[in-house]
Design a protein around this nucleic acid. Structure first.
Lengths: 182, 182
DNA sequence: CCGGCATATATCGGCCCGGCATATGCTCAG
DNA sequence: CTGAGCATATGCCGGGCCGATATATGCCGG
């Protein structure tokens, strides 16, 4: 699922600038399964415009840099629908923390405890954000379905970490290996 | 979490070839949160050898190409521990299917139904693989912790899809737009 | 007997992330 | 009042990584 398709998906629902698209990826209700950075969004948008799938209009603003507002064309809508109709590509999940956790037994207990707590905090924050999105309910039924899937998974993940992180910490090396600690 | 660290993590537990490392990423019990392809493993291994973190020995085989078996050095173990002690980087989850699902209402029902079924099948397969890894139990306590986390999340994900995919299919466009079908 | 698959290593094009540069005006602390 | 830092906004670039492909070989099934 490339950034091109992601941009079209956002523009499908309304016009936006590159900056706003990025914000929606990072802070939006779908941020838990979508990601993109400036370095890929701006070139993607430029290429999409070349191909006629989006059009842009430059808007001067007082006090702020001029913005380039993109909107999707009929051609773009068709291309997006085609993309969704094609083969989809697998989900992917990567977790540096779980790699870390696999080696809990060779790591100092302090470190494992700190990282486990950070991990829990992050899960709580992500989960809360999605619960808020659910409560706001500006979205349509499809969006709600997706949000509910996320809520179900996050709820379990958070609860599992909360009630089992202690076991992981117990696995860690008791003596914190004091040499040359910062 | 770069591929270098991933390679070290696998070699930490025993020697392996590039090919085997790749297999462990794709089929191993940790495949649900780790991924790497040849295109990154082989260069990473070569660089790791330059730096003295791993050493290799070439093993001739009759009927098969010669293999280069890598093993980790003490220096490599230290570097790996350092890496784990450093800042960890966020988990990431991306789902082309969920992006697809958000637009169920503009897509033909047949397509949504087919994709939803594929998605469920894939989840069942992934879940089963992890249940098998849990049953085998060659692994240590840390590995078991990680596997149990994965089991908890996958169990809920699978169950949620199974019991709610129908709602998503109902959202899809009823008439399949017969023009110019494949 | 030939195609496909498994083993095994390696490269290459291209996508994408993260950091940086650039420009500007606002707000808040010193 | 001044300047540090942040938010808005666009864009480039180095480097990391994926996926496809090349190369070599032998086994198994149709």
């Amino acid at each position: 699922m490339n950034v091109r398709t992601l941009c079209l998906s956002i523009l499908y629902e309304g016009e936006a600038t590159g900056y706003e698209i990025r914000r929606l990826c990072v802070e939006g209700e779908c941020s838990y399964f979508i990601e993109a950075s400036f370095g890929s969004i701006y070139p993607a948008l430029a290429k999409l415009e070349d191909e006629g799938f989006v059009v842009s209009r430059t808007e001067q603003q007082s006090g702020k840099p001029a913005k380039k507002v993109y909107s999707i064309t009929d051609q773009g809508r068709a291309a997006f629908a085609d993309e969704l109709a094609g083969p989809l590509g697998d989900d992917m999940f990567r977790s540096p923390f779980l790699l870390f956790a696999r080696f809990a037994h060779i790591l100092p207990r302090d470190l494992v405890e700190a990282r486990a707590n950070e991990y829990l905090e992050k899960h709580i924050a992500d989960h809360r954000r999605l619960e808020e999105a659910f409560a706001e309910r500006g979205s349509n039924a499809s969006d709600t379905w997706v949000i509910n899937y996320g809520r179900a998974v996050m709820e379990v993940a958070e609860r599992h970490i909360r009630s089992h992180m202690h076991e992981l910490i117990t696995l860690a090396r008791a003596e914190p290996k004091k040499d040359a600690a910062e």
